[in-house]
Design a protein around this nucleic acid. Structure first.
Length: 413
RNA sequence: CGGAAUGUGGUGUAACGGUAGCACGCCAUCUUCGGGUGGUGGUAGUCCGGAUUCGAAUUCCGGCAUUCCGACCA
């Protein structure tokens, strides 16, 4: 992508109507646009990041047998009535303009919907286990959207649902999802703490959250400094400075962002929607269920909260919108074009700052703000050495690489 | 939903109740060319509705929006 063609532009000053670091940087850099409180557009650069995250999530979900599908965002009232979740506070209602038309909720979760669908295809223990996920916009009328992408009213979510013949089988899968989630967050550059928590509207039993430590987080968790056992403060029996129940290590209190959660649902939904199967002995049993969520925007926002410096974003390579940013200085566009073509031919993801009306300072400042991992500079200075200068975002050192050797020296994939 | 703050060109800001100004951006042009270069000309604004007043960006009332604190948070 040529920067001269990119339709967004960076902003020198932080927007005055955003206080959180993630929103300030992502808006300044042109990754997102705020349409309303808690409602954001992903602009081209931001959408690339989302797609990177999506790809990672898909890989890990597929690896544990999740089958991707896509459910309606308009969820008929009958679904939510089946479990008494029509009148929840966060639900948006949607209906046509005419009187007495069907009423819908804008999907804020899909347990009811997928359970009904599953009831068509699951009738025997042989049909189980089964798990399926989707990546879709969720709508929740949050009483207070806040912190940029961290708590929105409309947001992308990966929701996975699993169905099992027994509690034991469910628990085995639960642990698999746990592993997959840790991998996902790790691949996005985040260290997540597996945290015992409450289930809210979803289930009466305890659930687990994946928490990433960050001051901006709205959750407070207790973590054992030794074994990393963690509990959400809202249900915790631990105390700051106290001792861990598991290993006796010292417990500390931290602010954190809930980037994912996993819920044991038991038979709450399968009973409500009468999803039963016939077991080996011919008995009818209710299917045991779990649901597992990850907010994509929140994940992206959390990465921005953690990976930045005073000059801007610092994307982990795995989810950066582009791996390289190529800058030309002082009328070296011709050589820049050549290298850009070469990189493209090698399949490299490169953002090319070919703007001729910008000074070196502006280009460097933009490269920093955008947070592209590897910066390549071509200038009269480097060309004298028949080289291109390389610098990693967030590091001070630069090194020269011969133009001829770019392909061998750089990992272009 | 309770509390607080703030709404001025695209962005960030200034203006005692009395000419809406500055910087950045953008357009044109010249200049400069390794960390937001310098000049000249141009472009564009008081959230919405009402009230007070000779006169309202400024005061008052109502609304809407955004942010923050709290409640809530699958």
């Amino acid at each position: 992508m040529r920067l001269s063609q990119l339709f967004t532009r960076t902003e020198k000053e932080a927007p005055k109507d955003e206080a959180s670091v993630n929103a300030q940087l992502l808006e300044r850099a042109g990754f997102v646009y705020k349409n309303n409180s808690g409602i954001y557009t992903y602009l081209p650069l931001g959408w690339r990041v989302i797609n990177k995250i999506t790809a990672i999530i898909r890989e890990e979900m597929n690896a544990i047998g999740g089958q991707e599908m896509f459910m309606p965002a308009l969820v008929d009232k009958r679904y939510m009535d089946s479990t008494g979740r029509w009148d929840v506070e966060v639900a948006f209602e949607a209906k046509g303009k005419k009187e007495n038309e069907a009423r819908f909720t804008l999907g804020w979760t899909h347990e009811e919907v997928i359970t009904e669908i599953a009831s068509k295809y699951i009738s025997s223990y042989k049909d189980l286990p089964f798990s399926s996920y989707q990546i879709q916009t969720k709508f929740r009328n949050e009483p207070r959207a806040k912190s940029g992408l961290l708590r929105g009213r409309e947001f992308l979510m990966k929701d996975l649902y699993s169905f099992h013949a027994s509690e034991e089988d469910f628990l085995r899968y639960y642990e698999k999802v746990r592993g997959a989630y840790h991998k996902i967050f790790e691949r996005c550059g985040l260290k997540s703490f597996y945290t015992l928590a409450a289930g809210g509207d979803f289930t009466a039993s305890n659930t687990h959250e994946f928490q990433v430590l960050a001051p901006v987080g709205e959750d407070t968790i207790f973590i054992c400094s030794k074994c990393e056992y963690a509990e959400n403060k809202e249900i915790s029996s631990l105390a700051n400075g106290g001792l861990c129940l598991k290993c006796g290590g010292k417990v500390r209190e931290e602010k954190s962002v809930e980037v994912g959660n996993i819920f044991p649902l038991g038979t709450k939904y399968t009973e409500a929607l009468n999803l039963q199967f016939t077991d080996e002995r011919g008995n009818k049993e209710f299917v045991v269920m779990g649901s597992y969520g990850i907010g994509l925007g929140r994940l992206m926002g959390t990465v921005a909260e953690i990976y930045h410096d005073k000059n801007g974003l610092i994307w982990p390579e795995s989810i950066a919108p582009y791996k390289f940013i190529l800058i030309t200085l002082d009328h070296t566009k011709e050589e820049g074009d050549k290298l850009y073509q070469k990189l493209l031919e090698q399949g490299a993801e490169v953002l090319y700052d070919d703007r001729e009306d910008k000074t070196a300072g502006e280009k460097f400042a933009d490269a920093d703000l955008l947070g592209i991992p590897i910066r390549l500079v071509i200038s009269p200075k480097t060309l004298k050495e028949k080289s291109v200068e390389m610098k990693m975002r967030g590091k001070k050192v630069t090194e020269l690489t011969k133009l001829k050797e770019v392909e061998e020296k750089l990992d272009l994939s």
